[in-house]
Design a protein around this nucleic acid. Structure first.
Lengths: 129, 129
DNA sequence: TCTTGACCTTCCGGTCACTGGAACCCCCAT
DNA sequence: ATGGGGGTTCCAGTGACCGGAAGGTCAAGA
């Protein structure tokens, strides 16, 4: 299978697939003409990566998870730790964003949004004190 | 005031302040020795920028907001639009992160986290079907 | 047979908002 | 004179790609 087919199948852009090869996440074969030739295992790995990335894991996490996936003797505790740490980061991000949202939505609500210059949003940013 | 003092006062790293000058968000004066000399208005702008960045506005948004801040004839509607758009993006991000969190926390809960290899997290990523 | 167009290749630069580090200058106290 | 703690510029790197240029390959149609 060529990169275009793999791209269609996995939903990953060809650019991304090449990038993943570049950083040694996958190692497709090469045809005589230099084209990448993807085996089923490559496609499988790419799907794995796509799902892991969709869950927000970093590329380095993905590398770790992929290694664990391929290691029959892994301990699920190792997988769980990676996932739990990532989950914690997500929770933190959500909390940060919520704080921003709360502040912002108050400000947006307080702003008349007409053609006059008075604006509580700018007042706040300017250090309204 | 030199950059170190401004950094202390605003809580922004000196590197960041130099960067903001680089991209023309602020224009501090220069002393004869080449040192930046910050006026109160520069510090004020930096505080504005710090607060706007803390609310997650992009640098370009900050530039826009700063321009509106300085424009006595602005319409608050313009400010509100920027803020509302940004708020929408935050909401989207929160929703995305929540979806990730929900999926992930289910998986983490389902994983034994012991020394055995069986792991629902990897099963899911591998396309458990 | 030639050509068209859809593929594929590599490589370089850009994104965003900084951050780290090197190499250097300046000023004040000892 | 020396040392230390400022300051300066410039270059490179971050993460996870994306866009585009310049060129090679292949199958189908005129």
């Amino acid at each position: 299978m060529n990169i275009g087919d793999v791209s269609t199948r996995t939903g990953l852009p060809a650019k991304t697939i090449r990038y993943y090869e570049d950083i040694d996440l996958i190692k497709p074969l090469r045809d005589d003409n230099g084209y990448r030739r993807f085996r089923d295992q490559d496609v499988h790995k790419l799907n794995f990566l796509g799902r892991a990335r969709a869950l927000g894991f970093t590329i380095e996490d993905c590398r770790t998870l992929l290694a664990l996936y391929e290691d029959e003797t892994r301990a699920s505790a190792d997988v769980k730790r990676v996932a739990r740490d990532h989950l914690a980061q997500i929770e933190t991000k959500i909390a940060d964003l919520k704080a921003m949202r709360d502040t912002l939505s108050h400000l947006v609500d307080a702003c008349a949004g007409d053609d006059r210059p008075d604006c509580p949003i700018l007042q706040d940013l300017g250090g309204k004190s």
